[in-house]
Amino acid sequence: MSEPILTVRGLSKRFGDFEALRHIDLDVNQNEVLCLIGPSGSGKSTLLRCLNFLEAYDDGEVRLEGELIGWREGGASPRRALASGALRKQRQGIGMVFQQFNLWPHMTALGNVTEALMQVKGLSRKQAEEKAQAALEKVGLSDKAGNHPANLSGGQQQRVAIARAVAMEPRLMLFDEPTSALDPELVGEVLAAMKQMAAEGMTMVVVTHEMGFAAHVADRVAFLDGGRLVGVTPPSEIFGKEPEDPRIQRFLQTYRERNVV
């Protein structure tokens, strides 16, 4: 495996008195797919949102290719947040896909993808539309470019959201339960698009309840519980045999009982 592209060291996040994340250490390698699993409320979303500074983490560091995310370098205490322009620059390198799609309903599918290309990357409308068309094509939606989100199925909306993020050519993609809001028959098309991205070498961190995806696509699986990182292992260690950690055992047990795996 190659160099880590993302390093997380001693990451902690509190909401008031509640410790949502406790001293997380984690590396994500170039071209790797890392799945984050864990019980509800264990802090998966919070961890993901710290990685692109949607949540300002309290202690520790998140570095993308060595660059500290969100905070200014240097030992000032308390730390000072980056200027908004610098933070925006960092975020351009990190794409994110949400459970609720978060498309902009007043713009067409194409408009959703071109918006940031024009406003952030400064492309002309023509260039942006070409690029957006290519991104939509990739997720199999070139014929839906003119539709508003209200006229797309959930699976199609999520694929537009993926195209929107991918078109910015990020170095890292974050997915927060991208299929959890979808009807079961629509899950497959979104997972297929993600699999294709993985095959093309995109570095991805995926929070998911789709154990099948974790077992077959992930290079490694990280298990989070109560704000702590319990373990990071190849999927075969978790799904192949009985995992050693009783917490992971219990978590997987509930899945098996629901016939999810």
């Binding site: 351009q92 007043h106 940031a116």
Partner: peptide, 27 residues
Amino acid sequence: IPLGQIEAARCLGIPEWRIVLRITLPQ
């Protein structure tokens, strides 16, 4: 306006005033 839509825009690096102009106001 759902916060998620604003966050999606922030993730793409769109400046705040642009978010207001292009996403918040029209909706």
